[in-house]
Amino acid sequence: MRWAASLPLSGRIGLALVVFWLLVAIAGPMIAPYPVGRFVDQEVFSPLTGQFWLGSDYLGRDVLSRLIWGARYTVMLAAGAAALAVLAGTSVALFAAIRGGWIDEFISRAMDTLISIPSKIFSLVLVAAFGSSLPLLLLIAALIYIPGNYRIARALAVNLAEMDFVAVARARGEGALHIAWREILPNMIHPLLADMGLRFVFVVLLLSGLSFLGLGVQPPYADLGSLVRENISGLAQGSSAILSPALAIASLTVGANLLIDALKPGGGH
């Protein structure tokens, strides 16, 4: 709590938003007022009422329930993909940085190639090739963001590997595993966590963008991007069925960004 209080205002807002959406994602099934796929309203695109807090969607389903479930998919997919990307990227980066030589050059060249394919373009190619089931989407998103994490982790690891305390460990006779795990990695944790947060935001934006285009999460599942897409016909009347999932995504990603920015050394300026 003392830690949260030390953040600037923007950071505290970000923290509150992130915690809120994490709780929604975890507790979703328990707090959703209606089953996610049930048609509960006679009307479609009905406004906010006591019965349907966020109105109903284009088929007369409860928007709040669908939003809670959508957030669950969005958060879980993005968190999984971001964690996977950082785990894989950092492991490979540590390996490359410590081995050095042609192995490092080969891996770095391969990662440079992958990073020079714009992420959304790459995701379209991969979705077209492999399909878009939930596990595949998670893997695709992770794959796309591995090279970015690799680059950052490798730069960190190479800098650390040149530090004198690593030279001391090498001169002591320590093996590569000890050096990577005990000497280098503990000093990378903070920037890596920040990077994971950023990748989380990227994945949320990527997957909801794909879903919005109808190429991401497929029915019967729906993430927040899918909710915006399926209710696009309600745009003309400014229906909450389309605005609330859009705002939900924005509050999640903006919140995460504000939090990460406040945690940076000298953050929040």
């Binding site: 605005l243 990603t253 960004n257």
Partner: peptide, 16 residues
């Protein structure tokens, strides 16, 4: 804060 928020906005939100 403004630019930080904008970079985190999905394009379709801004467009809609």
């Amino acid at each position: 804060v403004v630019t930080l928020s904008l970079v985190a906005m999905p394009e379709f939100l801004i467009a809609t």
